[in-house]
Simulated assay, not measured.
Amino acid sequence: MVHQKLDISVYRESNETIVALTGEIDLQTASRLSGAVDAALAEDPVRVVLDMGGVTFCDSRGLGTLVVLSRAATRSRAVLVLANLGDFLQRLLSVSGIGDHFVIREHATEAEPGPEDRA
C-alpha cells in the first residue's frame, strides 16, 4: 500500500494562523499535524484555521486528533476553525457526530467586511 504523505504549510494572517493541509490525516501523519498546531498555538493567535481543502482522507485517528487539537486551542484561549471542508469531510464529521463541536467556515480566510456589511 502506498501511503500519501501530509503536506503542511503554516502562515499568519492578522490575528489568526492558517495551517493548510494536503494529503491524508491518519495514524502515520496525525502527530505531524499535532506538532504544527501546537507550534501555531505557541504564537498566541486568536484563531488557528485548518484549511482542509487538500485533505484526501481522514481516519478515526485523524478525527480524534482534530478533537484533541480543538481542546488544546481552547486551553490556549484560541479557537480551532475547520475550513474548506469537502463533501467527504463534512459527511465524516456528521456521521461521527462530532461536527457540531467544531467551528466550521467555508473559506480559510475571512474577507474583510465591506462598507455595506458594517453596521
Rank of each mutant, 00 (worst) to 15 (best):
S14E: 14
V19N: 04
H3C: 02
Q28K: 06
M52R: 03
E16M: 12
D44W: 01
G62W: 00
E16W: 05
T65Q: 15
V81N: 02
D38I: 08
D44H: 14
E112M: 11
G114R: 09
A36L: 05
K5Y: 02
R105N: 07
V67F: 06
A111R: 15
K5E: 14
L33C: 08
I25E: 00
A78R: 07
I98V: 15
S9R: 15
Q4K: 12
T17N: 02
G97P: 03
P113E: 08
L85D: 04
L80R: 09
V2T: 13
A40G: 01
V2Q: 11
A39R: 14
S70L: 05
G54A: 06
F102R: 11
M1D: 09
G114H: 07
L27T: 13
V10K: 11
D26E: 14
T29D: 05
G54M: 06
G86N: 14
Q4V: 13
V46A: 12
G99W: 08
D87C: 00
P45Y: 07
D100L: 04
D26P: 05
S14Y: 09
S96K: 04
S9L: 09
M52I: 05
R32F: 06
E106Q: 12
E110H: 04
S70G: 15
P113C: 10
T56S: 14
H107Y: 10
